[in-house]
Design a protein around this nucleic acid. Structure first.
Lengths: 331, 331
DNA sequence: CTGTTAGCGCTTTCAA
DNA sequence: TTGAAAGCGCTAACAG
């Protein structure tokens, strides 16, 4: 089904058919209706490759994410998908599994794939080769979750978010508070959250706190269990993300500790599922869907204006503390 | 950066450059290396739209899913993404929010988007207009999770899976067992699971059991709470999916019931997160990633052979029961 | 082994 | 308002 066949069947030129689909008002209502009817009968759909080739716009956005297995990113992608659809864009998501080489591969793939722009979360914007390459290519992009002064980023202020989470724990009487995180080196978010933690502890005048770095998510529970069984154990845990918080609660349980009675746990991310858990997860919520939505809007806006989003367009969205039930006063 | 400029700079014809990228062995090693170097210097990447237009193959697969907010589908999509990438395909996912009209819209969008094939979960294959349209279009597709004798489907035998889950509960001494499900009318999976439940109960010679239909996932907990507080309350719940099971446990908690001491709960889906909960979720696991992977492989295989997957290629993958901790004997 | 060339389906001047 | 025609970048005959 090509524009050609529609034109023939309708007895008009291909240019007219094209106009009917692209600039309906540039065509007499009569011919327009006629063409539309014929096109409908033939089940004609404009070929998007041909259109892309001609216009140099694919109306496709690439999305690079670490994984879909963490609901944070699934929620964000959902937000991206909705906003993109609303704006007439399709998306091509690629996951990297937190691996730098996959990050590269993903960007290359998308660069070769004729996407109009890219939304991505990289391990670390300051050092990402993929990001460098992307910037070099001149393709519009927006980072999500990452924060960096030289790139357009949609993020939240993790640092102060974690600091105030610590303050809450301190108010509840906690003094021995530890942080649980994935590998710091692997993620600027983890680093920011750790800094927020240090800052919160310093503000409260508390001891240099412990960091439990959990390199492999699969073994998190084992490591945490070990940590919780060593004395003196903390009375509260601040976790770098909700998945880790959930695993920490599990580890506490395996160590015979009850949350929040014996141990308070705070997560970070605000995944929807946290609210349905028992105890409901106390966490710093990020507007994951909105983060996705804004990234699309920023990109689409720039695309429409023929510009490239720059660092000045960065957005820091509001975070919040969801009280939940996994935090309690020290007895 | 076009093939043309590479050809000129390398002093060869465009055909040669094309061959270097598509059939490297059809070119002298010398020229090949030369062209590759020049292409590298120029940062040349073949334009995929032009290629698609010419070859009529986009190497893109469309994916239609209800939502990414349920980890089942996120896990499946992750499997799809991996397998697709491995096979040299990109994916365009579209979510429908369980809405029939969105299902239509998604299929139309993808049909117009030059995808080579579609992977989809529809509400009900027997009645889906979108599926009908798709079949009419002659585009290769595979259903996932759905089951229907006239379509190629990757699924598990939910019916017997639920039946045997019921049998386990019966072994544990349960007699008053209820099922918790989303709207039956909205999903063939829910219907299959309900049938499995009925069958399991019948086999055990138990009373016509209760069904708690939860139309809106947001209000699930309220409804469940009400149900659990009415007498005589069940001693066990079989839930149509893990999210519902998690909410059921929450509802039990809100009603002052402890799981599994006062109430046993079994889920369905086997989302990874279930293992990290406390109590760990007892559930019927589906190989979500594999379901995705197989759907891609089936599609890619058909695509390679120039055929269309048909109902005969359907796969029923093995399910399993993950014992977890949310089930216990009746005291 | 390499080059020439037609044409995939569409949009977009430019003329009529 | 409509049409003719060029050309987006690539692949695949076909010829050499």
């Amino acid at each position: 089904m090509s524009i050609q066949s529609v034109a023939e069947k309708a007895g008009v030129s291909v240019a007219t058919v094209s106009r009917v689909f692209n600039f309906p008002d540039k065509v007499t209502p009569a011919t327009r209706e006629h063409v539309e009817r014929v096109a409908g009968e033939l089940g004609y759909l404009p070929n998007s490759s041909a259109r892309t080739l001609r216009t140099q716009r694919s109306r496709v956005l690439g999305v690079v994410l670490p994984t879909l297995l963490n609901p944070v990113f699934a929620e964000c992608l959902q937000g991206i998908a909705r906003a993109a659809a609303a704006g007439g864009y399709a998306i091509i998501p690629v996951t990297t599994g937190y691996q730098l080489d996959e990050e590269q591969r993903a960007v290359n793939l998308l660069l070769a794939g004729n996407v109009d722009g890219l939304i991505l979360v990289v391990s670390n914007p300051a050092t990402s080769a993929a990001l460098e390459r992307l910037r070099g290519a001149g393709l519009p992009y927006v980072l999500v979750y990452n924060r960096h002064p030289e790139h357009p980023c949609i993020s939240v202020d993790s640092e102060s978010a974690v600091a105030s989470a610590v303050a809450r724990l301190v108010e509840l009487g906690h003094r021995r508070i530890a942080m649980v995180s994935g590998t710091l080196a692997a993620s600027d978010r983890a680093q920011q959250r750790w800094r927020g933690f240090l800052q919160g502890m310093a503000t409260a005048g508390l001891e240099p706190p412990a960091l439990v770095e959990v390199p492999f998510i699969e073994t998190a529970v084992d490591e945490l269990t070990r940590f919780l069984e060593a004395a003196p154990r903390p009375t509260a845990l601040v976790c770098s993300n909700d998945l880790l918080a959930i695993r920490s609660i599990r580890a506490a349980h395996l160590s015979g500790l009850q949350v929040p009675r014996d141990l308070s746990v705070i997560g970070f991310d605000g995944i929807a599922l946290g609210e349905d858990l028992t105890p409901a997860l106390s966490t710093v919520t990020q507007p994951n869907g909105d983060i996705g939505r804004h990234s699309v809007e920023l990109l689409v806006q720039a695309l429409a204006g023929g510009t490239v989003p720059n660092a000045g367009a960065s957005l820091v969205l509001p975070h919040a503390f969801r009280a939940g039930e996994s935090c309690a006063p020290v007895p």
